[in-house]
Design a binder for these strands. Sequence first.
DNA 1: GTGTTTGCAAAGTGTTTGCAATTTA
DNA 2: TAAATTGCAAACACTTTGCAAACAC
Lengths: 140, 140
Amino acid sequence: MDDLKKSEKDTLSGKLQNAGLRPTRQRLLLAKILFDGLPKHVTAEQVMTAVRKRKGHVSLATVYNTLNQFTQAGLMRCVSVDQSCAYFDTTLEPHHHFFDEVSGRLWDIPEGDLKISVPDAPHGRGIARVDVTVRLNKKP
Amino acid sequence: MDDLKKSEKDTLSGKLQNAGLRPTRQRLLLAKILFDGLPKHVTAEQVMTAVRKRKGHVSLATVYNTLNQFTQAGLMRCVSVDQSCAYFDTTLEPHHHFFDEVSGRLWDIPEGDLKISVPDAPHGRGIARVDVTVRLNKKP
DNA sequence: GTGTTTGCAAAGTGTTTGCAATTTA
DNA sequence: TAAATTGCAAACACTTTGCAAACAC
């Protein structure tokens, strides 16, 4: 828990300040776009588009910097899906991975060490595959 | 220009031919490096390093092309871990994703629709988080 | 005021591509 | 010989950075 006043917690300004970020015009606009209560998955370019739609202006570099700052501050997180695949894996059988955030190393989780049951694919779609990555950091 | 043992060459040759790929010098060398029976997770640059270590030569562009061809041919697969995170996600609570390979869209899997149990972190490491991506394609 | 943040353009990264030369079947 | 493959360098998309001007406190 924290000992901040309600108003501080409830405004975007307060949210930024809580995170140690000055509530600048740009950050407030981005926060308004991002934290409207609905879950979002956005790319930097999509954020730019949203900014333009509101007739605002934030430079692309600032969008990138701000998204990274928000992420670092724990206000959001990031998901890597594909783009150009960073790691090529010689094992074909379905299997999952440990990823060591410290060393950048990736290795297999032994078969049977992980159990998962996934929902059905939406209508008209099939499951291509299921990727599980257990991300490791230094022991807390 | 033959630095591969005959038996290896024949096996790898066949593997490439089965996949509809001509067994060229470059592909054979890369196949030898990649398919030695041990599971591997490599980046293009690591493959380049392995090539140099064997005093071979394959251009970087060919390494990329070949890795993509091998992947496309089903000889290997690729795993995306991070790099610069492509999607920023405003939801902080642990949750997982559907990723539609057709549209490139990403959305949340409703809480409770997915069950997973993961192994303990290796000694000295903690679990930072678990990422599950259910990748969708066109219905088969 | 003082330290922080922004915007711009330039630099950087990792990957793909166009095309002539080479190699394979 | 015809078609596939390679290497190079240039193009590429996306992201980060350096620094002067603008801003928040």
